[in-house]
Computed example of a mutant assay.
Amino acid sequence: MSFDNVCKFLAEQYPQVFVKWLLDSEETSIKLLKTELNVNPIHADSVLFLRVGKRILHLEFQTEPKSKPPLPLRMLDYYVRLKRKYNYPITQVIIFLQQSNSEVVFKEQYEDENTIHKYRIIRLWEEEATSFLSEPILYPFAVLAKTESPQQILEEVATKVNDIEEKELQSDLMTSVSILAGLKLDKNLIQSLLKEEIMRSSVIYQEIKKQGKIEGKLEGKIEGKIEGKIEGKIEGKVEEAFNLILKISNQYLGEIEEILANKIKNLSLEKMEELTVALFEFDCLEDLELCLEYNT
């Protein structure tokens, strides 16, 4: 589970906390919208849609500013789709987790010849760390926020999490803190302050273990079946990669029709390898179709 997916997990499990933080709203009528609008390319960062009363909150967590299509255009695309589908006011927020000097991180609108579309960006490293210490669900963001001593903040967060009585919440938060702190602090320091035995019952922790096993098996298959032992036999590698994709899709998503199969055949070997891993994150063939729209 990637850094941004950890954030998405927290927002899905505790949406009221994020609505309060980002919209300054006490609205309790909150519904998680499914990903029928999901047109993310392979390995895109996490996207979340919440219906908050009669408003849509489109929330994204980003580790890196690089995106295909570029983030500003993607925000416009999502806005139009959401507006057409729900016709509600829409608030769009991108939260950048890791400090960057990229101009994308500081650009809060899409500009074209006839269009200007605005959205909101939160750069965690500019937010005061102490502002995340009053709400347990937001503890994982404190270490990534502005502070003279990230280690001291991590120590304080670890103490607070240890004092949480609800074991499931404690486990999930400790795992989330451990993962996100890895963007800023040394792994050995994190391990010395956070107890792995508490993390083991966490949904996030279990998902990481599960995903690691899947990716490990896939890596072996890709390395053995796709890369092969003899360099230069690209055509054979592509054929094997294509067959592996068909096999995985048939097992988990459904049978791929000829038109979709032809799009996959036109992918580069590298994209096929990426798609092979990404298939396990899709819920249905529609997710695969939308993904290929941005990669063909």
Rank of each mutant, 00 (worst) to 15 (best):
S2F: 00
S2H: 11
E12L: 12
Y14I: 02
Y14K: 07
K20G: 00
L23I: 06
S25V: 08
S29W: 04
I30L: 04
L32D: 11
K34V: 13
L37C: 14
V39D: 15
I42C: 12
H43N: 14
L48D: 03
K54L: 07
I56T: 04
F61G: 04
Q62K: 13
Q62T: 07
P65W: 02
P70D: 11
L73C: 06
L73M: 09
D77K: 11
Y79G: 00
L82A: 02
K83V: 02
K85L: 03
Y86D: 10
Q92D: 02
V93S: 12
Q99G: 05
N101S: 09
V105N: 09
F106D: 13
E108T: 13
Q109Y: 06
Y110N: 07
E111F: 06
E113S: 09
K118I: 00
Y119G: 10
R123S: 12
E127Y: 05
A129L: 11
A129G: 07
S131T: 13
V143I: 15
A145I: 04
T147G: 08
T147I: 05
T147N: 06
E148N: 15
I153D: 04
L154D: 09
L154T: 10
A158C: 03
E165R: 13
K167P: 02
E168K: 11
L180W: 09
L183W: 11
K184E: 01
L185M: 02
N188W: 03
E196D: 13
I208F: 05
K210D: 00
K210V: 03
Q211E: 08
G212S: 01
K213E: 03
I214P: 00
I214Y: 02
G220I: 08
G220E: 07
G220P: 00
I222K: 10
G224M: 06
I226D: 10
I226C: 13
I226M: 14
E227R: 07
G228E: 05
E231T: 14
V238K: 15
V238D: 12
V238Q: 15
A241K: 09
F242N: 12
L244F: 05
I248V: 11
N250E: 11
Y252N: 12
E257L: 08
L260T: 14
A261S: 13
N266Y: 06
L267T: 07
S268K: 12
S268M: 08
L269M: 14
E270P: 00
E270L: 15
K271S: 11
M272A: 03
T276I: 15
F280K: 07
F282C: 11
E286Y: 05
D287P: 00
E289L: 04
L290N: 14
Y294N: 14
T296A: 09
T296W: 11
